[in-house]
Simulated scan of single mutants.
Amino acid sequence: MHAIVVSTPGGRSALQHTKVPAPSPGPGEVLVEVEAAGVNFIDVYQREGRYPLPTPFTLGLEGAGTVSAVGEGVDDIAAGDRVGWVNSLGTYAEKVVVPASQAIPLPDGLAADLAAAVLLQGLTAHYLTHSLYEVRSGDDVLVHAAAGGMGLLLTQMVKLRGGRVIGTVSTEEKEKTAREAGADDVLRYEGFADKVRELTDGKGVHVVYDGVGAATFDGSLASLRIRGMLALYGAASGPVEPIDPQRLNQGGSLYLTRPTLAHYTLTRDELLWRASDVLGWVESGALKVHVSERYPLADAARAHEALEGRRTTGKLLLIP
């Protein structure tokens, strides 16, 4: 079978489309024929070596497809079942082995590519808005990169919970996309903290969802109201430098957290709760998923280039 293999971490040239032996499921695992793989910033971090992995490795954590074989001890999943997953390395491939405990059943009416496009970002948006900070009706919320895959889902989930979304974007086209998703106000990045204050009568927002990182961090802190929370869930512009905790005091007894999805899907029950909500909303039309572009598996480097260049709105997929 073919897969995207990284032998030496680095730039996009590290993504090698090559033949590898097909895997077999072990005890408690299932083998899946990949129909679509999601492209995410964590893939870039792993490719670069920012998140080190033993080499060589096949990239990709998120996807959807059809089970072709099951390992010993798996009795609740069978060959022919359609599943998705969010934390199984090796998804940039024609086949992948997934722990049965991480396999998410797909609704009959939901296409595999839509599941692959929404699971990782959708579950992340779910825990950010439903657990890490439970958005309440009337809350003011700042969503960075509001026209990206995560930003669009965050915007919609905040609106589902009755919050007000102030989004940041880089272009007029992206502003239109963010507003179509439900953003109440849309700003450019330059001077956004002062504008957020103006839009909130000087108070600031209850929570900032920041996946941009270094370029927005200071402004994000400055956008918060007293006892507000900064959820720094990514670093698309680079990692944030260490800070003096006293800044949180000076800003108004602020909260700062750097969360990850794995800690909010600790049990299968929690995983399936979040997935059931997200996939159910997609199936019903309550949550819109925008796929920006689909690339052949061999063009993984082009997909990474588009993602890193922040030229995309919505999700990027690889199709084996």
Rank of each mutant, 00 (worst) to 15 (best):
Ala183Trp: 03
Pro23Val: 01
Asp299Gln: 15
Pro54Ala: 11
Val135Phe: 11
Gly167Val: 03
Arg188Val: 02
Asp139Tyr: 09
Val74Tyr: 00
Val30Ser: 11
Thr267Lys: 02
Val30Pro: 12
Val208Leu: 05
Gly84Phe: 06
Val141Asn: 11
Tyr133Ala: 08
Ser292Ala: 15
Asn249Gly: 14
Glu48Lys: 15
Ser13Asp: 15
Ala125Met: 07
Lys176Gln: 14
Pro9Trp: 00
Leu232Gly: 03
Val289Pro: 11
Thr177Ile: 15
Pro52Met: 08
Ser292Asn: 14
Gly84Glu: 05
Phe217Cys: 07
Asp113Thr: 13
Lys288Gly: 13
Ala215Phe: 03
Val20Pro: 12
His206Asp: 14
Arg82Gln: 06
Val34Phe: 06
Glu94Tyr: 00
Arg164Glu: 10
Leu187Glu: 09
Ser284Glu: 13
Ala125Asn: 07
Ile319Cys: 08
Leu266His: 06
Ala14Thr: 13
Pro107Ile: 10
Leu232Cys: 03
Ala236Glu: 05
Ala214Asn: 08
Pro54Gly: 02
Gly10Ile: 10
Asn40Gly: 11
Asp210Ile: 05
Gly151Arg: 10
Gly213His: 00
Ala300Thr: 04
Gly162Pro: 01
Glu172Asp: 15
Thr124Leu: 08
Leu123Gln: 04
Tyr189Pro: 05
Ala193Met: 06
Ser292Leu: 00
Asp185Thr: 03
His144Asp: 03
Thr8Trp: 05
Arg12Ile: 13
Glu293Gln: 15
Leu154Lys: 10
Ala181Ile: 08
Leu232Thr: 04
Asp108Lys: 12
Gly122His: 02
Ala112Gln: 10
Ala78Ser: 14
Met229Asn: 08
Val291Pro: 05
Ala103Phe: 08
His206Met: 04
